[in-house]
Simulated assay, not measured.
Amino acid sequence: MRVLVAGATGFVGSRLVASLVDHGHDVVALTRDAERYDKPEGVDVVEGDLLDPPLELPSADAAYYLVHSMGAGGDFAARDRRAATSFAEAAEQAGIGRVIYLGGLGDEGDDLSEHLRSRREVEQVLGERAFELTTLRAAVIVGSGSASFELIRQLADRLPVMVTPRWVRTDCQPIYIDDVVAYLVGVLEAPATAGETFEIGGPKVLTYEDMLRTVAAQQGHRLRIVPVPVLSPWLSAHWLRLFTDVPAGVARPLVAGLRNAVTVSERRIDEHVEVELTPFDEAVQRALADGESGGA
C-alpha cells in the first residue's frame, strides 16, 4: 500500500515510517525541508509546508496526519487549524481515500484544556472532508523524545521533595510509543476501522503521582510528593520552567491539560487490532535506556 506520512520527522512519525517500511508498505514522507531529512532506505520524500498553501500532495492509498505546532509558541491552536485545513484540502485534491489521525483523549464535557480542544478541533477539520477518517485518541505517550514523558522524567530526576499542584492526583492512562505505532499500523491494515474513532491506552490507569514515583525509582531516586491546591496552571508552568528544560511554549499547554482526566472509556479497538500492551514500568525502563543510548 502506498502511504503518505505528514509529520514524518516527529517523535511518533519517525517511528511509524520505519514500522510501515518493515510491514512492506511504500512510504512517502512529507517534510518542509527534504535536504535535512535523513530518510530511511526505500522512503520517498515530498517537500511542502502546511502553513504555506497551496500544498500539492502525491496520490496515495492512505495518509497519516501527525502534525502539531504546540512547541512553536504563540497561538498554536490557530496554526494547527490552518495546517489541518491545508492538509485536508490537499489530500482531497490528491484523491487520498483514507486519513489516519492521532489525537488526544479527554471527555468533551470536562472543560478540556486549550491543547486538548485543539486536538479535537483538528479531528473535526479532517472529518469534514470526503476521505474516510480514522482517529486514535491517546494520553501521555511514553518514550524517549516525548515532551510529556520528558517533563515527567526531569521532574522525577531533579526534585527529591516535590511541592506539586493538585493535578498530580489526576488520572491518566499512559501508553508506550511502540504500542501506539502498532495501533497506527494496525488500523491501516484493518479496513473496518475506516471512518471510526478509537481510544487507546496502556494496560493501567495511573495518577501523575504514580508515574513520577515509578520514573524516580527507575532513576535510583526516592520521591516525596506534597500536593498543594494553590498552584494555578500559569504558576505551574513557571514552576516547571525552574526545574525542567521543556520549552515554555510546550509546558504551558501541557500543564493546563493535566487537570483533565485522560483515560480509556472503551476498548473497541481490540476488535480490530491486537496489541500486547507494555506495562508502564517496562515502558519507562525502555524509554530511559533509549534516552541514555541517544535513541530517538
Rank of each mutant, 00 (worst) to 15 (best):
T207A: 08
I175Q: 05
V163I: 15
A192Y: 14
C172D: 03
D178T: 05
V163L: 13
V215G: 05
P227F: 06
V187N: 00
L184A: 14
G186H: 11
L159F: 02
T197L: 14
V205Y: 06
R169I: 15
A194M: 05
V187E: 01
V180R: 04
P160L: 14
I200C: 10
V180N: 05
D179E: 02
D171C: 08
H221V: 08
Y183W: 14
A182C: 02
A217N: 11
T214W: 07
A216R: 10
E196G: 05
L184K: 12
V205I: 12
Y208A: 08
L223E: 13
R166C: 04
K204I: 12
T197N: 12
T164M: 00
D171E: 12
I200F: 10
D178C: 01
T193V: 11
T193E: 05
K204F: 13
V180H: 02
V180W: 02
M162P: 03
L206D: 05
V161L: 01
A190M: 05
D178W: 03
T197W: 10
Y176Q: 12
K204Y: 15
L188W: 12
D210A: 09
V215D: 03
D157C: 10
V226K: 01
R158M: 14
R224G: 00
L206M: 08
Y183H: 15
P160A: 13
V215C: 07
E209N: 05
V215K: 06
K204D: 15
G186A: 13
P174R: 04
V228D: 06
E196N: 03
R224A: 00
E199H: 04
R169G: 12
V163W: 04
V185Q: 08
I225H: 01
C172W: 14
V215N: 10
T164C: 01
L159S: 00
D179N: 00
V180S: 04
E209L: 06
P191V: 14
E189W: 13
W167A: 08
T214D: 12
A190E: 11
R166K: 14
A190N: 10
T170D: 12
E209I: 01
D157Q: 14
D210S: 12
F198M: 11
G186C: 13
R224I: 03
R169Q: 15
R222Y: 00
F198S: 13
V228F: 02
V226N: 00
R166S: 15
G220M: 06
P174K: 04
D178M: 01
